[in-house]
Design a protein around this nucleic acid. Structure first.
Lengths: 275, 275
DNA sequence: CTAATAGTGTCTATTAGACAGTATGTT
DNA sequence: AACATACTGTCTAATAGACACTATTAG
């Protein structure tokens, strides 16, 4: 190899051939999480809340007619986060939304067309901010999540279709809590998107405990009961009222508003406290 | 646009042109962290321990003569983790090492040659396992880290050169723990590698508290004093002995070995407990 | 004996879990 | 009145922080 000698970075760059190395396609997949309200069972009872995710139906190959996360190619002139934000805006017409990088998936055969690496993002939105209708191929799916130390079982339900998938957890090493995720059942989701979904669920569950991240999905005013419901539906377990209220106490601020007319004692509306 | 209609995924794939979309180069940068022993100040005192990182000196443009993390292009036929593992093996001749994906950096101009996206990994090694000499352009740098809620100040020292950089932390949004990191001072490190280093430091500090990750950097046998030193040097603060010992108690196992001849009471050697 | 680290006992303050109770609206 | 949720008081168990003490070695 006869290597040319350069005397400055400018000189080197002028000569540089970008095709010297393999290039590949980079996409981003975005998890859009939110909270949905269920139906009221009786005039007295609370609305059930659901933890839900936005999926779109593919109308092209590959994975034609399967559901997948909104996503797309990362342009040569945008960062991955800009691409994710652009796609989020396209789907929801929302800007200024909480978005966080999750993980970059790079299995060789994750896309049957060619080598595609995908960086996934998680975003959290308050559904009340949605004004436009969803595009015709998009739909919110409520998630029923069963997680133990061996696996995830997730049922996605948009009212018309129920999608089920299972992901096995294999401990990677004894020194940490890291797992290899392996999809063991999946008939309706495209690509490796079950993995993206469970990664997002794990990240969110985790962050609920030590951040204020939940408020990205809450409306401006909410009752502590509603907030607790949101925690419970994401964590997949019931919480004790006094402990929950102690934990949340310094994150919220009482307002002089109330939620009335529910067939039981009215509840004080709170808002997120801006420290 | 005249779109051809396909009747099966096979048919579609046969026809697919992978050059339809922009393609870019993907690299990986790998943080190799370990613990180094300092000199003994007196026959009585303990060895000081240092938290250190492996850097290599660039001998080509761009960033000729600056220090950077070991890294390289991700081949079209390997996952990013495989690429990182390959580079780690090349630098250290070690296999079967703890390695974890950190973050994917994608700023448009992070590489002056062309658009390059880089996925960073963090690995933790026990330096005692190193047998071969380092390659001539590689060097271990002890890190002196000062972190508060506004910034990181890091001094890297390999005994010959001292490199200093500073990274400002800007809270991204009030609802989380997430920061935008901005390099405010850096003369000696290439690319955006100061960002990778502080991301790794943060991740590690965090995981020290709730995982057994530290043992990836420990030798087979160690004293609790040494283990505490390692925690202290990574966390950048002193810990109270009884609290530390309570915290660590069920992660370690006493052996019948001792460390003697140190000018003070001998210390029992422990090993990591395999639950 | 001295310097230095090894290792433990224990008090206290804080936090988390559990349960039971009171409060207040709608029908 | 009955129901359903809102909200609080308090006991107990577990954990974390702090300090002081004892133990043991080489020189």
């Amino acid at each position: 190899m006869n290597k040319k000698v350069y005397n400055s970075e400018e000189e080197f760059l002028k000569d540089y051939n970008p095709n010297e190395y393999d290039r590949l396609s980079l996409t981003t997949d975005i998890l859009i999480f939110s909270i949905s309200d269920g139906k009221k069972e009786s005039y007295r009872k609370l609305n059930e809340k659901y933890f839900s995710v936005l999926l779109v139906k593919r109308d092209d190959y590959p994975f034609k007619d399967k559901w997948c996360l909104p996503g797309g190619f990362v342009g040569i002139d945008e960062t991955i986060e800009q691409a994710a934000t652009r796609i989020l805006k396209k789907e929801t017409n929302l800007s200024n939304i909480y978005i966080e990088q999750l993980y970059t998936f790079s299995d060789i055969d994750r896309d049957p067309r060619m080598r595609v690496v995908s960086t996934s993002y998680m975003s959290l939105i308050d559904k009340n901010l949605l004004t436009n209708k969803l595009s015709s191929n998009a739909s919110w799916f409520n998630m029923e999540i069963k997680e133990d130390d061996k696996q995830f079982k997730v049922i996605l339900d948009n009212g018309e279709e129920k999608l089920l998938f299972e992901v096995k957890k294999e401990l990677r090493e004894k020194t940490t809590d890291r797992y290899n995720y392996i999809v063991t059942k999946n008939e309706s989701l495209a690509f490796d998107h079950p993995l993206v979904i469970v990664s997002g669920i794990s990240r969110l569950k985790n962050k609920l405990e030590y951040t204020d991240i939940v408020f990205n999905m809450m409306p401006k005013y909410f009752t502590l009961g509603e907030l607790q419901q949101v925690y419970e539906v994401i964590l997949g377990k019931k919480l004790l009222d006094p402990a929950f209220r102690r934990m949340i106490a310094d994150k919220v601020e009482k307002t002089d508003k109330q939620k009335k007319g529910e067939g039981h004692r009215p509840s004080i509306l709170y808002k997120y406290k801006n420290k």
